[in-house]
Nucleic acid binder design. Structure first.
Lengths: 131, 131
DNA sequence: ACGATTCACTTGCATTTCGCAAGTCAGCCA
DNA sequence: TGGCTGACTTGCGAAATGCAAGTGAATCGT
């Protein structure tokens, strides 16, 4: 290990975000620019609230450690929150905060772009559920 | 190597996209859902056209192999193209195709969201180093 | 009442992707 | 014609991801 002076590292990923630049688009990507975070937010927008095990049922099949990591990160950033913050975790669903819900236009844009410009690449597969 | 029967693999990443589901949002993320692709498109939107070395100058400092990989992928998907397809690579800039340019609303949405909901998190960090 | 089950996570690795540094190579440029 | 760019490769260590199994508290069934 080259940078071995710091033996103890974060057990899982990004609890501290590395801001690559001062560009707002870049900073947005530093938060939601991975393959899973937006899908979690999608499920919350569509479904209102979701429990941990409900997230696991989505067709993309996120793995449990990634899900836990992202839920924790999104909670820290206050994009999501527990419905009952002081209750136990069991059946205590997550929901979007206003900051998280404000991503909805981005998701709509992605959906529209995919529908208009990406369908050809995975032809039969993508079907859009009319909003 | 467990799946060793295929000794020769893609030298760098995703020239074949793995579509995780039929959801359009998921499919959009299968294409642009990483930390670098959208930044490349941002540079093209802002700058009109960009050469390989101009991309390298952006403040986020993408590394050369990742840049080459993403440019190649975006070219295959016809989101970008060379200005002179039949000329040599040297000084032959890339530009957005209509499909790539159609991502602009998504970038605007990300920028607006970042400005409205994310500024606080990197407030102290992002300081403009006046040059 | 209490063992079995469910739910929400952790933990341990194997595999994949990223990131940096260095190298290659063709086309200018003097 | 020989050095210099500009546009990529290559190699390899580091980090993130994916999968399977484990943990532990709360609830359920009897």
């Amino acid at each position: 290990m080259r940078h071995g002076e710091n033996a103890r590292r974060e057990e899982m990923a990004a609890q501290t975000i590395h801001w690559r630049s001062m560009c707002p688009i870049s900073s947005a990507l530093d938060v939601v620019g991975d393959k899973w975070t937006i899908l979690i937010i999608r499920d919350l927008i569509i479904h209102g609230t979701r429990t941990y095990s409900e997230f696991l049922e989505s067709p993309e099949k996120i793995s449990t450690n990634i899900l836990a990591d992202r839920l924790s990160l999104l909670s820290n950033l206050k994009l999501i929150e527990r419905i009952e913050p002081d209750a136990a975790a069991r059946n205590n669903a997550y929901r979007l905060t206003p900051s998280g819900a404000a991503l909805q236009p981005v998701l709509e844009g992605l959906g529209r772009w995919s529908h208009a410009h990406l369908k050809a690449f995975h032809a039969g597969i993508v079907k859009i559920p009319e909003p």
